[in-house]
Nucleic acid binder design. Structure first.
Lengths: 129, 129
DNA sequence: ACTAAGACTTGTAAATTGCAAGTCACAGAC
DNA sequence: GTCTGTGACTTGCAATTTACAAGTCTTAGT
């Protein structure tokens, strides 16, 4: 009796074939999407800029999330000087296309969470792949 | 000198006034939105049904998430028998309006995560408030 | 009486988070 | 030329959260 693996090899180790579950494995936590928000909506690029956001992300978490976002291909890290090493982070096309997810979240939040404030203007991000 | 609290009282204790940050405080983890998915897209209502989803959520996490979702007003718990106590869970209007967020996630996942499978048909949920 | 099912709770080990502190190289002030 | 500060991190550790296993409690079926 032959047994056929029901999930394609590229999803080995994943929780399921559900797209939502797989997206959550990338951005399903309290911080990752806030970094994407800063890159995408606030035009931030540098470590210190992310730290200065009002949620005050812990520095080790920020370092970790930038690494993961880069590994997932949502963020491109580019050094603008070698010594000491200093980098800027850019959102990729893949990362930028999470924009609609953020938008829908913001809309829902605006409707159901009293007191939240949607900024009146957004900075446009530079996309690099 | 009088000091004016910049954030409205309803957001005291929250990370910021950003709608995205506040939404993430409710659904920003690996499991919560999967329960919402089951309620909203698969029409599931009972504890055992959520457990039978392919991601196999740990039972204590499921109990916790259902409690939090109810506390946040996204889910309504209704007992259909007293002894032993047996309940069904329904999505509320507030919870159902997370649908577009899930949809955008699913679309992104379908585009960027090879191997995921979007189900061809969805069950319609019953909304109760 | 025995077994099973549904909806949980409890215990515990592993992983993740959050806070503080330390590092390393340069830049400017005195 | 030492002193202080800044940017971008890394490291250590306590607290919280997660994952897995096992136990509970009541009724239904054989």
């Amino acid at each position: 009796m032959k047994k056929i693996n029901p999930s394609p090899s590229c999803l080995v180790g994943y929780r399921s074939t559900c797209p939502i579950a797989n997206v959550l494995d990338i951005v399903g936590d309290k911080w990752t999407l806030l970094v994407v928000r800063d890159l995408l909506l606030s035009g931030k690029r540098r470590y210190g800029e992310f730290q200065s956001s009002p949620e005050s992300i812990p520095t080790n978490i920020l370092a970790d999330r930038l690494k993961r976002l880069e590994a997932a291909g949502l963020v491109k890290k580019e050094f603008y000087q070698n010594n000491p090493p200093r980098a800027e982070y850019f959102i990729t096309r893949k990362g930028a296309e999470l924009g609609p997810v953020l938008q829908e979240m913001a809309q829902w939040g605006q409707k159901y969470i009293p007191g939240v404030i949607i900024p009146s203007q957004f900075n446009q991000p530079e996309i690099r792949d």
